[in-house]
């Protein structure tokens, strides 16, 4: 009771989704702060040995539900398992990835349990809350901090009375860190038939196509990103040339994607990917807060913009004031020269 639970998403090839491991890392630090245990839930098929992938993140207990009917994911059986497990175990906090699965499962479970859920949190902290009406003070609540209103404001949400306090977080927002490679927890293998009913299996996945991602923006050390100021798809070709030279990846703002300059799967920002490379070269990007939300954790930021007052310049380590059409070819040429 009163522990922290993380729903661990199982991907193709029986891997644990990166976002789930990031949440275990966050869950561990919250558990340390609150003095409770961290528990992980893995639901899928062929999960033999999955606990070994989870313990090193500081997991005290791994709940495994292993059945052929549980992969690929469908809503009802996973929701039935989580709802019953949470009713039995009474966690104080439950975390899920803000993925297609987490955003399908989380609200379903929160409705069953009548517990509040905050989507797409960018920060999770522990703190107190005073209910202004009743004057009641709550200690050690989960602050669920997220952008709202299209990313124009940041809201801190709490669930004072209902448990678990549920939150989803996007991939890449939290850092993933092994706590202790030798960390040992306890394994609980559950009897799936006690948790799901035949009518939970009425929605069936007939066919699936999952492609390898066309890029590695999530792990890239160097990202060259373009905004609306790149002007065209051809403008982006130059960014691909620079990125290739630097062994980096190309990203884009929503405005550039909407204008058709770059593919949607490379969008960085609040409604796209969250990245934290060593070096981020922002080209022709004005710096709307929705974009900055997805890249502000980058190590070094270079802004190339013809507008010396572009908002992104205020968070940049280097500001190059000039036209991208001039600056990018020069960066390419000088890099080639200096590394010959």
């Amino acid at each position: 009771m009163d522990n922290i639970f993380v729903y661990c998403e199982i991907t193709e090839g029986r891997n644990v989704a990166p976002v789930s491991l990031e949440l275990l890392t966050k869950g561990r630090s919250l558990a340390d702060r609150l003095g409770c245990a961290l528990e992980a839930v893995a639901i899928g098929s062929g999960l033999e040995g999955i606990e070994a992938d989870l313990y090193p993140y500081g997991v005290d207990r791994v709940h495994v539900f292993d059945d052929a009917a549980l992969f690929p994911y469908t809503t009802a059986p996973h929701a039935a398992i989580i709802t019953k497990l949470f009713t039995e175990e009474k966690p104080q906090i439950a975390l899920m990835g803000a993925t297609v699965i987490g955003r399908d499962l989380g609200p379903r479970v929160s409705s069953s349990l009548h517990s509040g859920l905050t989507a797409d949190c960018t920060s999770l902290e522990i703190g107190e809350y005073e209910d202004k009406k009743s004057g009641k003070v709550y200690e050690n609540l989960l602050y669920q901090i997220r952008p709202a209103f299209g990313g124009n404001i940041i809201a801190t949400i709490v669930n004072p009375d209902n448990r678990p306090q549920m939150a989803t977080v996007r991939e890449g927002v939290m850092k993933r860190e092994i706590r202790d490679a030798a960390y040992k927890g306890e394994l609980v293998r559950h009897d799936v038939s006690k948790y799901i009913a035949p009518e939970d299996l009425l929605v069936r996945v007939i066919e699936r196509h999952v492609e390898k991602p066309s890029h590695h923006l999530d792990t890239a050390n160097i990202i060259v990103a373009g905004g609306y100021g790149m002007g065209s798809r051809e403008g982006f070709d130059k960014l691909f040339e620079l990125a290739k030279l630097l062994h980096g990846e190309v990203g884009a703002t929503r405005a550039a994607v909407d204008a058709g300059f770059c593919d949607h799967d490379r969008q960085i920002g609040q409604t796209g990917l969250t990245v934290r490379p060593k070096l981020y070269i922002a080209c022709g990007i004005s710096g709307q807060i929705q974009h900055i939300a997805g890249m502000k954790e980058s190590g070094i930021i270079i802004s190339v913009n013809s507008d010396p007052d572009a908002p992104i310049n205020s968070i940049a380590d280097y500001v190059v004031t000039g036209r991208v059409e001039d600056v990018i070819p020069k960066l390419i040429a000088h890099y080639k020269n200096l590394t010959k």
């Binding site: 009548h114 517990s115 509040g116 859920l117 905050t118 809350y129 209910d131 602050y143 669920q144 952008p147 709202a148 990313g151 124009n152 404001i153 940041i154 809201a155 801190t156 949400i157 709490v158 669930n159 004072p160 009375d161 209902n162 807060i289 900055i292 502000k296 930021i301 802004s303 010396p308 310049n313 205020s314 968070i315 940049a316 380590d317 280097y318 500001v319 004031t321």
Partner: peptide
């Protein structure tokens, strides 16, 4: 069940940049 504790406008830590 969820309550808004507070709402902040967004401000980012401005850096000293080389120009």
């Amino acid at each position: 069940p969820t309550k808004v504790k507070k709402v902040d406008s967004i401000s980012f830590q401005a850096k000293e940049s080389k120009r």
